[in-house]
Design a protein around this nucleic acid. Structure first.
Lengths: 361, 361
DNA sequence: TACAAAATAGCAACCGATTACATTTTTTGT
DNA sequence: ACAAAAAATGTAATCGGTTGCTATTTTGTA
């Protein structure tokens, strides 16, 4: 046990200390006896630098364990190559698909993503918008929280000319592109389908009517009723939140109605599944006693029994379109890319939960 | 139509150009005839600056529309006040709960979050780890992808002394804290429960056994069988992926078995729900013909019929613990916070899918 | 061989906030 | 009233990469 081990340890400590200090392009430059400008260019494969020099630099960088400092880079370049995303929830097949679509497009274009979720809270949405603004994302893709009915918080972005694309949950805007589906028609088709199945007393379970998607689905519902000579009964329209408890509440309220509705259009599959279960537990037969149509084509709709009739639309495509549009704006030389509204295809998927006339009709 | 309108427009353009240029602390300093150092301090409420000066600076900042430049700041301070999070999926109640727990703790401590998801792909996980490393997060909280069986990619962090906390899906590590549940006991309890319900031929549907959670649940299953004098039959153990199609495959495979198993332990609720449905579609009665126990207490387990018996554990608590541990490490003056393994409580929740002896036993 | 043009590489000024240290101003104590 | 201590503010270097412009070298051509 001579002094050596102790010295060894000391030495290690020093090494650790040295490791703390980051390797910079200047270190590489010194090592290779070139300028840091050359290193900077070489690292980004700038053709102004010889292929050989580039290779030497990149090899040295690897050896020294260099890591690019995005802060220095972003500071100087005044851009982050990052796109911010705000979604109203994460735990949803639809949202996950949208994210997949966005990722596909953005990563191909060399952008990073920062995902934030508002958990359906306006307050959190505002916080997220502010945060992403401070993080200086180059652009934003957002779907509004259920109770968001103003867009002041996005003005920050507009003022700086940072493009924002909204999808699915949107508001009327001047400057921003929107990627949506035709919720009105979807609402109409869903209701029409129930009517065709023989329903005459159709309830609607939906959420905050200030949120575009729910408002438009409601209008479609209304229009379909009218078109078929049915009256819109206010009592049959239930506005509830999106949590499980709200679904149960809605179902319970429907069970109280006399006479019972013979069909329900429920504007999201999760709530629809909850209601369906509640009805079954209280002795109703689906669809015989009550036919159900949901919305979104969530996986859950295929696992409940009977399987849910629903509206399907491709989240991935929505994500891709949103991302493509954003990137187009980002790479536009000036501000001449017009704000557009992109509509994604959607369709009714008929399953057992609404089929009162299985093979007829 | 004199020249005035044109001049006006020109003027506006200039204003817009000026707006482009960001307001910096130097602008504020100039306006107030103080130094930028004072402004920097005042903006962060440094008590070295008079309360009045602070107020003046903050007011001026507001008026000028100043926004803090995190790049300049992070570059100088060499820290980001940001925590990276890597999860294996987003579309899951469990993960959402964990995120809620993490957010609760980290936002209270003033940290930002960057959420990345690997979508159960090792490759994507590596990419995410690298990306967050380059984003220079101060710390990392991660849950491994299903097929991740090496941790080389986290060495980057270890080398720089950046703390990493793993939760749920973990590996044996030296340096990192891990927040987990006792998967072995859970597997044991689930199996034991099936045995108590009279099952003698119990199948196991699970995923990659290299992933700790599945390995340990498998061992618990095995131990419970042995403890009850039952033989482990390899044919009864089905290793499948986590997608819906894999669930159907597993269910189909079970239907082929002769004799049919009288119970199945399926190590996640989604796959369990898929199997349950498949069994029902093929005429089996649950639990009479086959009893099912799932895992995770996902909402879906309460919406299928019969409702799934499952293992419950609190994601939110897991998230909080992970975050707390990470922050403790971050704020520790030296490296003396030992890496620990934190275990979260879990329990069996019995529902109809496994109750062969409803009110007896 | 000479000279213009193209290819490489270097210089140095940025980007904006932070902070160790120095300087000025105010307060305190005697 | 004046030195010493305390408080407030200022100076200037620093974090690390980028890029307009300049200097040097190489290549091409007459």
């Amino acid at each position: 046990m001579g002094p050596f081990p102790a010295i060894e340890i000391n030495h290690n400590r020093l090494q650790n200390m040295e490791q703390k200090r980051e390797v910079t392009i200047h270190d590489i430059a010194r090592r290779l006896k070139v300028s840091s400008a050359t290193v900077s260019r070489a690292l980004r494969d700038n053709p102004a630098i010889t292929r050989q020099t580039r290779a030497r630099v990149q090899e040295a960088a690897r050896q020294l364990g260099y890591r690019h400092n995005i802060f220095a880079s972003s500071l100087r370049k005044q851009q982050t190559n990052t796109i911010g995303i705000i979604v109203h929830e994460l735990n949803s097949h639809f949202i996950t698909s949208v994210l997949t679509g966005i990722e596909k497009v953005t990563s191909a274009a060399g952008y990073d993503l920062i995902i934030a979720h508002s958990a359906e809270s306006y307050k959190k949405e505002v916080a997220n918008v502010t945060n992403l603004f401070h993080k200086r994302v180059d652009g934003l893709i957002a779907s509004l929280a259920c109770d968001t009915n103003r867009l002041d918080h996005y003005a920050l972005f507009e003022d700086k000319g940072i493009p924002v694309v909204f999808f699915d949950r949107v508001e009327e805007t001047v400057g921003s592109t929107r990627v949506i589906i035709d919720n009105y028609t979807c609402g109409y088709l869903a209701t029409q389908h129930l009517i065709e199945q023989g329903c005459r007393r159709i309830a609607l379970v939906t959420a905050n009517l200030e949120r575009n998607v729910y408002q438009e689905r409601f209008q479609g519902y209304q229009a379909a009723l009218t078109a078929n000579g049915l009256l819109l009964e206010e009592k049959l329209v239930l506005i509830r939140g999106l949590q499980e408890s709200c679904g149960r509440e809605a179902a319970a309220a429907i069970l109280q109605m006399a006479p019972l509705p013979d069909g329900v259009f429920i504007t999201n599959d999760f709530t629809a599944s909850v209601c369906l279960q509640h009805f079954k537990q209280h002795g109703l037969r689906i669809p015989a006693d009550i036919a159900i149509v949901g919305f979104n084509n969530d996986v859950i709709g295929r696992l409940v029994e009977p399987a849910l009739t629903t509206i399907d639309y491709c989240g991935e495509e929505m994500g891709e379109q949103a991302a493509r549009s954003l990137i187009e704006h980002l790479q536009a030389p000036a501000v001449n890319v017009p704000a557009t509204t992109i509509s994604i295809r959607s369709q009714l998927i008929v399953r057992e939960s609404s089929l009162k006339k299985p093979h007829a009709s």
